[in-house]
């Protein structure tokens, strides 16, 4: 039985609209116009317990709005949401005790006090026993390696240290469902990697269900077997990450290493030139003809080495987002 079930979710925001100029200002004074802006438009999916799902899409695609609806922050315009058997917007105590929403660079920690005080506050709020609190805290502090910073006022911590403490505050009650919205945003590559390792370990250790949104494909590639791609408020793909390539890649990438430079117009007649550095040229060709084109290039050009591969997943997703 799925732990999260979303059926035909819609969320529309009302935004004020003003015509330009003084006339527009006067009109707006008497009769203000509003536009209905759909942020999520008929989204449906289910997630099983223990799954780690990547939610990807360009800015304004509806990722965060969906997470906010799932965590009970936003009232859906229509549709059905079931998380752990609850309707999230009711924000029942037992529901809130089992979920967590972590937003990159957004703070629940007390700024002027050590992070430990926020952990203690959450211990009281979530009614965690002393034994469980100590056990989970010790485990999280160990995995995230922050034993020496939890007693220092938050304002004196680096962004990475703050993010780690933020995660502890969000996970101290051992939520069953975790929504991670851009958790690695603004972090350096080392910290990003540490955080990814932590998320993976948390998922395994506590069998928690996680939904992750991120602009960094590395996060998604390393953590999520399943991805949901959303664009303009609609789901355009839901499945295994590898399947995106099979389903959406219409081209292949041929990289040629030549013994001497050749006229690029010849190569252009076979496909789109992606890059050309010295004697190394990369062209994109239709997948269906890739073998035949490669053979022709080998026969006609002074090729030292040839490599045919699928395009980068980032490239495919970029194409999906820009496709009308």
């Amino acid at each position: 039985m799925p732990i999260i079930s979303v059926q035909n979710l819609r969320k529309t925001f009302q935004v004020p609209y003003k015509e330009p100029g003084v006339a527009g200002a006067l009109k707006s004074l008497i009769h203000r116009k509003y536009l209905e802006k759909p942020a999520v438009d008929g989204v449906s999916f289910t997630i099983e317990e223990g799954e780690l799902v990547g939610f990807i899409g360009p800015n304004g695609a509806g990722k965060t709005t969906t997470l906010k609806c799932l965590s009970g922050l936003l009232f859906p315009t229509s549709g059905e949401i079931d998380v752990l058997g609850f309707r999230p917007f009711d924000r029942k105590k037992t529901f809130l005790q089992q979920i967590s929403l972590v937003m990159g660079q957004k703070n629940q920690l007390w700024w002027d006090l050590p992070a430990m005080e926020t952990f203690l506050l959450n211990k009281e709020i979530y009614q965690i026993t002393e034994k469980q609190f100590q056990r989970v805290l010790q485990s999280l502090v160990e995995i995230l390696q922050v034993a020496d910073v939890v007693q220092i006022p938050v304002r004196n911590l680096s962004l990475g240290q703050r993010m780690k403490c933020e995660l502890i505050a969000a996970l101290i009650h051992q939520p069953k469902v975790i929504f991670l919205d851009e958790p690695t945003i603004g972090l350096d590559v080392v910290m990003q990697q540490n955080l990814r390792t932590f998320i993976k370990e948390y998922n395994h250790q506590f069998n928690a269900t996680l939904i992750l949104t991120s602009h960094y494909m590395e996060d998604v590639k390393e953590l999520c077997e399943r991805v949901i791609v959303i664009n303009n408020g609609k789901i355009v793909f839901d499945g295994r990450l590898d399947d995106i390539v099979k389903k959406f890649s219409t081209d292949k990438k041929i990289t040629l290493l030549l013994s001497k430079s050749v006229d690029l117009n010849i190569l252009q007649s076979y496909g789109q030139i992606k890059s050309s550095e010295g004697n190394k040229v990369t062209i994109m060709v239709p997948s269906a003809n890739s073998r035949q084109i490669a053979a022709e290039l080998l026969a006609k050009l002074p090729v030292v080495d040839v490599n045919i591969e699928e395009p980068e997943i980032e490239e495919i997703i970029r194409q999906m987002f820009t496709r009308k």
């Binding site: 965590s71 009970g72 922050l73 105590k93 037992t94 809130l96 979920i99 929403l101 957004k106 979530y126």
Partner: peptide
């Protein structure tokens, strides 16, 4: 308000 709404209190 988000941080308050997410807490079971």
């Amino acid at each position: 308000l988000v941080k308050y709404l997410l807490r079971p209190i």
